[in-house]
Design a protein around this nucleic acid. Structure first.
Length: 546
RNA sequence: GGCCCUGUGGUCAAGCGGUUAAGACGGAGCCCUCUCAAGGCUCAAUCCCGGGUUCGAUUCCCGGCAGGGUCACCA
């Protein structure tokens, strides 16, 4: 068969020669050991935690080795395309502090390997498909999806390996006449690889994360060009990673099973394959079994989820880092204020098994990060959240920056040693501020003592209170009140003889606290009353009487 | 079902032939304390199973078992 003629017939386009592309995309000039990595999402909607996880690994590897991290858009499936997805990817990653050096919609002088949208590289793929056809390594297939389904059903029934291979590859041995006849009839067709492999042959492949893995040669005549002339992922990725000079392909382990296809593709194209690193996926508990986090079922996979909930973005990144390299946690303990970028990320330190997504741990990382914020930073973080997700009242409150910073200093303990460290999300922090504003102060008088006791405490304290009192004077007044209601003024005394008292100083403070803040728990009450001011403090003490 | 990957406390995990089997999160308790938070201290909890190899296996080999992934003109 004249395969050159066939190639010309099938792909008549005037295309640059395959060799010319080597000159168009010359090797990158990078220091030794520099890794070139990429994030190659399909623009099918919104980016999720799995993407962030992978992007972080890519970005770290590239930037700890002096390499390049670029963005390529795999838009070969038109049906699944979603508008605005590319911008969304960039914006989402940027929110978490991850930036690309090069690629789609990235403004950079490094963009010399584009276009970075696969649809815009159609000529490149077609040139190589044409070459393979001419070499007899690829052929047209006219099988309909109905025929393919029927074959697959039969194979399943007979417990044979499914797919297009061996004697099942009907179009593989079509005669020249048959091909041209079908072409004349205008039958739609795809281009398939004429696989040279044999599934009986096994070989060992070294994965950068999993180590040595044993796989069999590919023998499937996979589709390389779909009927619309656009390449499949497999074909496009081999060509792109070659010409974009990717050195390390980091991708989910769900790709492991198609590795033989990719190896063969590189081989027939005459390319040296990049190194591969297959990451284990983030899992989640479903009933009593683990499963991969699913975009459709699990809201926590959406990055918006973390933004809405008010997680500190850097915390999400640091949490992910602990999953990526478990020794990162140790490093973090030693360098609590260090930049995570200073940590020596290692791809070979990545876990081989799928990690359960651990919300408790994320919460822990988030609350430590939030606790480290200065009052100004904390204000910035919370007000950012409020402007997007807060109530009208929240927005009004946050307009008063000066007052807010003062409250935050107290509530969060910013700047001091005793920092509040239980705020995991912006929303919790914002709610903690409610009682400082009269419109959101919710009196909940759940006193544990009788009416008479409560009213005496409140009334007497109001009479004694002075906004000028410092902490010790303030507390002395609380203590002085105790005997008047049969409580112990000294803690030690109470502990020695609890049977002699109805309560102790802390109970007196509790009554005051409930009246002033509506809660039995709050930061230092003396300071709170100072911030509220004399008028509002006294008003609350009075209102608190029952 | 075939093929591939994985298997250390509840979770993330260190470990690479001899260890009291790190550490972190979470849990329990104690101390401190005007409550909460923070902090300090203590405790409970792990090598999937069965065979080998070896003086000695969590570590090496084989076989089970379990979990996960994948079998498209989707990526």
């Amino acid at each position: 068969m004249d395969t050159k003629k066939l190639a010309e017939k099938l792909i008549p386009d005037e295309l640059p020669s395959p060799e010319s592309y080597e000159e168009l995309y010359p090797a990158r000039q990078l220091p030794a050991g520099a890794e070139v990595t990429r994030l190659a999402p399909s623009p099918t909607g919104f980016i999720h935690l799995g993407n962030l996880f992978s992007a972080l690994a890519d970005e770290r590897v590239a930037h700890t080795t002096g390499g390049i991290f670029y963005l390529r858009i795999e838009d070969t499936d038109e049906k699944r395309k979603v508008d605005g997805a590319v911008e969304s990817v960039i914006r989402s990653l940027d929110y978490f502090g991850i930036k690309f050096d090069e690629g789609a919609e990235i403004d950079s002088p490094l963009n010399k390997y584009g276009p970075y949208y696969q649809r815009r590289r159609a000529g490149l793929y077609r040139a190589f498909a044409k070459k393979l056809i001419a070499e007899g390594l690829a052929y047209p297939c006219f099988c309909t999806s109905g025929e393919l389904d029927a074959v697959r059903e039969k194979q399943t029934e007979n417990k044979e390996i499914t797919g297009y291979y061996g004697t099942y590859a009907k179009c593989r041995n079509l005669s020249e006449e048959e091909i041209y006849k079908k072409l004349e009839e205008g039958m739609p067709y795809v281009i398939r690889l004429k696989s040279q492999g044999n599934a009986a042959n096994k070989f060992t492949f070294r994965d950068a994360i999993k180590g040595d893995i044993t796989v069999t040669e590919n023998e499937q005549d996979i589709v390389i060009l779909k009927s619309d002339g656009i390449p499949t992922y497999h074909f496009a990725h081999a060509i792109d990673d070659h010409f974009m000079h990717t050195t390390l392909v980091i991708r989910g382990e769900e790709w492991l099973s198609s590795l033989p296809v990719h190896i063969e593709l590189h081989k027939v194209l005459g390319f040296k394959p990049p190194r591969y690193a297959h990451t284990s996926s983030l899992m989640k508990m479903d009933g009593d079994t683990k499963r991969k986090l699913s975009k459709r079922k699990d809201p926590e996979l959406s990055l918006d989820y973390y933004r809405k909930a008010g997680y500190f973005p850097l915390a999400v990144v640091k949490y992910l880092m602990t999953v990526l390299n478990s020794n990162f946690e140790e490093w973090l303990l030693k360098n609590p204020d260090g930049d995570y970028r200073d940590f020596k990320f290692r791809i070979d330190k990545m876990g081989k098994s799928g990690a359960l997504f651990d919300l408790d741990k994320l919460n822990d990382v988030s609350k430590t990060e939030i606790s480290k914020l200065s009052a100004d930073e904390c204000y910035g973080f919370l007000s950012g959240w409020v402007s997007e997700f807060g109530t009208e009242a929240d927005k009004a409150h946050f307009a008063n920056r000066e007052y807010l910073v003062k409250i935050l200093n107290l509530v969060m303990g910013t700047g001091g040693k005793k920092r509040r460290k239980d705020i995991e999300r912006a929303e919790q922090g914002v709610r903690l501020l409610d009682y400082f504003f009269d419109d959101t102060f919710k009196p909940v008088y759940g006193y544990r003592f009788d009416r008479e006791t409560v009213n005496i405490v409140l009334k007497e304290f109001a009479a004694a209170y002075s906004p000028d009192d410092d902490n010790s004077v303030w507390f002395a007044k609380v203590k002085a009140l105790a005997p008047k209601v049969g409580f112990a003024g000294e803690m030690s005394e109470y502990k020695a003889h609890p049977e002699n008292y109805k309560g102790n100083v802390s109970d007196v403070a509790e009554i005051l606290r409930i009246a002033v803040t509506g809660s039995a728990n709050s930061p230092d009450l003396c300071t709170i009353m100072g911030i509220l001011g004399r008028e509002r403090s006294l008003a609350r003490l009075e209102k608190g009487m029952i």
